[in-house]
Structure formats: C-alpha cells, structure tokens
C-alpha cells in the first residue's frame, strides 16, 4: 500500500479580534485545526466528520494547498500542497458543496471543454471520462444549460464531473450532498461508490449526512475542536461508544417479560418491551422468549447518528484510539 495523503502535527490558527471597551480591540488566536495526524492509503474511502466549526473544511483546504498551515507537515501525492499547489492541482479533484468551480455564465458543456484546456487533457481521454460521467450522473438533459440556471442537484452533478475530468488520483469532497434531494443524493452516492470500487481513486469526504459515510466509507475520522477523536471503522466507533443492537418485542396479551443474561430489559408498556443486547445474541434472546404470546419482534440496528450526536455533545475526547 502507498500512503497518498499524510499529515503530521497539522495546525491552523486564525486571529480573531474581540471588541474590548469603546475603541480597543484585543487579538485572540484560535486554533481551527490543532495537531491533526493523518495517513490515508491509495484507494481508501475515508469519511471525515465532525460538528460545525470542528476544522473539517480547514483541514481539506490545507491538504489541497489553499490555506497555509501554521505548523505541521503535509504530503499529498508526494507534493507539498502549498509550495507545489498548481502541480498538485493536476493530480487532485476537489468539490466544495457550498461553492461552485464552474463558470456561472457558460453551459456545462463549455465549462467542461474549458477544463480540458486548463488541465491539458488529451481530447480522447476527456471524451471517455465525460461519456462515463454523462451516463452515470444523467447529465445529458442539462448539458447545454448555463450553470446559473441549474438546480442545486444538477449543479452538484456538474461539479463532480468537473472534478473528475482530468483523472485525479485523490478526490476531496466537502459536503457534496448538502441540500440535495433524495434522488440526487442517491445519484451522487451511487456514482461515488462506483468510483471507489475501481480502487484507483482515493476519496476523502466530509459530510453531515451520515448515510453518505455508511454507504461509502469503510474508515471514519471524527474531528472535534480541531483534533482527531476517532480513527477507525464505523463498527469500532459503535464498540467504543457502547452502541447496542436492540430487540423490540410486542405481545398479544400482557405477560411479565423474563430477565435475560446479556440483555438489558426496558418495559415500554404491558404489551411492549425492549432488550438492549449487551452480550447475548438475538437468537439466544428469542429462544428465552419462546413461551410468550408474541405478536411481533423487530431487531433495531444501532444508529450511527446517535453515536455521533453523543460524540459531538459530550466532553471533547482528547485521546484518539
């Protein structure tokens, strides 16, 4: 495996001026990113999540060479992003969900053609990639519409295409599904999943929509207050924060639920109770419930949103696992 994105001790400070009294203003230094270490291998799909203001976008801007870090080292595709920004730009693709990289006044088709010139992509290669994006992202119906007239979902599909036409090795996506409807979200996710399946493109994705992460990313990086608080799989996150599968049981007639070792019982009503599985399997539990007049049983998988909400609202965790 080859490390494509590496960062060590990455830090970015901003100066904030605070009004003190009538005329005086104090300068205060705020660390948006505070000692982030990263190592992402070629072909990995990594979700980078955190609450608003945690430092996600700032990290991405430093990795792409737009912002100069206050401290730390970065290497992306073997380049130093700030010093070699224009050379790195040929090797990476970037989509900022809240900003457009397309030409406001031009139709998508012409924007793509311009990008071919800017990135000096051979016409044949460009045509192949564009054809693939057109079919996977359904671009044809709005290819001749000026960008300013596109809906958000259409524009985002255009942005994704624009980021991929030069065949980047690394794709940075900053909230690519923000504000999109369900159908557009599915289109974008499906496209990214297909892209990831090829194993050629390394993908780093920030999002607030955890379904994006669940569908696309094996690895999850959680950042809070500028520091990485979790780096691992979604399962590891569940294990760490004590997420449990839950068995919900509904009865035909009232009956006392049995205590089962390895499962915590919560009685919701005389006809409905729940078990949190703390050690027992769902099968073991059902065997123990066999004598009850059961009307319905459902197994609820742990919800990543709950885990992340607990992570965001809790006291900042300072030790990464």
């Amino acid at each position: 495996m080859m490390t494509v994105i590496a960062a060590h001790g990455l830090r970015k400070e901003f100066t904030v001026r605070v009004k003190v009294g009538w005329l005086r203003r104090d300068r205060r230094t705020v660390a948006a990113v505070d000692g982030v270490d990263l190592a992402i291998e070629r072909g990995e799909m990594v979700g980078y999540i955190g609450p608003n203001g945690a430092g996600k976008s700032t990290t991405l801007k430093m990795l792409t060479g737009v912002l100069t870090p206050t401290a730390g080292q970065i290497s992306v595709c073997g380049f130093s992003p700030v010093r070699q920004r224009t050379r790195l730009a040929r090797r990476i693709g970037v989509v900022f969900g809240q900003r457009s990289q397309l030409w406001w006044d031009l139709p998508l088709r012409e924007s793509f053609d311009l990008l071919r010139h800017i990135y000096r992509v051979p016409p044949a290669e460009h045509a192949v990639r564009l054809r693939r994006c057109r079919s996977l992202l359904d671009l044809d119906e709005f290819l001749d519409t000026p960008v300013r007239q596109l809906s958000l979902g259409q524009r985002m599909r255009g942005e994704l295409t624009a980021a991929l036409l030069h065949g980047p090795e690394v794709l940075f996506l900053d909230e690519p599904t923000i504000g999109l409807d369900v159908v557009s979200k599915q289109a974008v996710r499906g496209f990214l999943a297909e892209l990831g399946a090829t194993g050629d493109v390394t993908l780093m994705l920030t999002t607030h929509d955890l379904a994006d992460i669940e569908k696309l990313c094996r690895r999850l990086l959680v950042i809070d207050h500028g520091r990485v608080v979790h780096d691992g799989t979604i399962e590891a996150l569940h294990a760490r924060y004590g997420s449990r599968r839950r068995v919900v049981v509904e009865l035909e007639s009232p009956e006392a639920p049995p205590e089962v070792p390895g499962a915590t019982l919560t009685v919701v009503s005389p006809l409905r109770f729940e078990y949190d599985l703390t050690g027992a399997t769902a099968g073991e539990l059902l065997v123990r419930l066999a004598g009850l007049p059961i009307r319905d049983v459902s197994i609820v998988e742990p919800d990543i949103e709950d885990v992340v909400a607990r992570l965001y609202t809790g006291v900042p965790v300072t030790d990464a696992p």
């Binding site: 792409t64 737009v66 920004r85 040929r90 970037v94 900022f96 990289q101 800017i118």
Partner: peptide, 8 residues
C-alpha cells in the same frame, strides 16, 4: 478557493 485549485 476555486481559482487556487486550478493548475494555473
């Protein structure tokens, strides 16, 4: 930002 992400 978009201007700075171009290879020019």
């Amino acid at each position: 930002v978009a201007d700075l992400l171009r290879p020019v």
